[in-house]
């Protein structure tokens, strides 16, 4: 029952259809794609998709954008990436957290879907303790902060204080489109900025919401473990 990930590739049921990023088939599609995209993730001038803004609504399919199926889809869905300003500093931290990581989740204005997906990692299907990753309830015990939600004005100070109470060294992981860019909530009255505008972010996990396997991949990336290393701790 427990996921074979990261030892094996995720199975199709672990990567739902609507968690795969769009892909332009033909370069003539970009302008129409930009037009169709509600969050500005598709940039026709750069011919690039900003996954941090994508909410996976699939509206760009009307412009001809495609979504990978089958085995391709499973690989395409793994899209966590490093965002640390100083890679050497990050590498130093990763050496500390290779064997064990205590994670605190903080919600700064989410719709609750990301929260549930992060908590889902504790379920027997994903069982993150098998990888030496644990949830903690206090910033004083936390090595990594997983931030979810579009940063709300009333949560800015709370986020800063939570970050400051964590002992050094510490990691910050932005999970979900809202935390990375504001997602569909960019431009609402209470939205302040992406999380990276307030505290330094080391890893981003795109998705709306990212599925548990995608979050797990982000956590492993934060600890600097390749899938192979993670499979045999």
């Amino acid at each position: 029952m427990t996921s074979g990930f990261p030892g094996r590739e995720p199975t199709p049921s672990e990567v739902p259809g609507r968690s795969v990023p769009p892909r332009a088939v033909d370069s003539s599609e970009w302008p129409a794609g930009e037009e169709a995209c509600p969050t500005g993730a598709i940039r026709a001038d750069l011919k690039r998709i900003d996954l941090g803004k994508c909410v996976f609504c699939r509206r760009c399919s009307s412009a001809g954008f495609e979504f990978d199926e089958g085995g391709e889809r499973l690989r395409a869905a793994l899209m966590a990436r490093l965002a640390a300003a100083d890679p050497q500093e990050l590498a130093k931290k990763q050496r500390v957290f290779k064997k064990s990581l205590h994670v605190l989740m903080i919600d700064v204005g989410s719709c609750n879907a990301c929260n549930l997906e992060v908590l889902n990692l504790a379920s027997p299907y994903y069982d993150l303790t098998r990888l030496g990753i644990f949830f903690t309830n206090s910033p004083k015990h936390a090595d990594a902060l997983v931030v979810v939600g579009a940063l709300n004005r009333s949560m800015v100070d709370v986020l800063k204080r939570t970050y400051e109470s964590m002992p050094e060294p510490k990691l910050v992981i932005s999970a979900g489109a809202c935390a990375i860019s504001g997602g569909v909530f960019q431009g609402t009255e209470s939205f302040v900025s992406p999380v990276a505008g307030v505290i330094p972010v080391d890893v981003v996990i795109p998705g709306c919401p990212p599925s548990p396997v995608q979050i797990l991949e982000g956590l492993l990336l934060a600890t600097g473990r390749s899938a192979k290393e993670a499979a045999s701790p």
């Binding site: 049921s13 609507r18 889902n120 504790a122």
Partner: peptide, 23 residues
């Protein structure tokens, strides 16, 4: 209970494309 909930979320994903039924 978590296992059963995950089963339903996967049913959502299979039949509606999204675990939380967005879209």
């Amino acid at each position: 209970a978590n296992i059963l909930r995950e089963d339903v979320l996967r049913l959502n994903a299979r039949h509606f494309g999204h675990r939380y039924l967005f879209g």
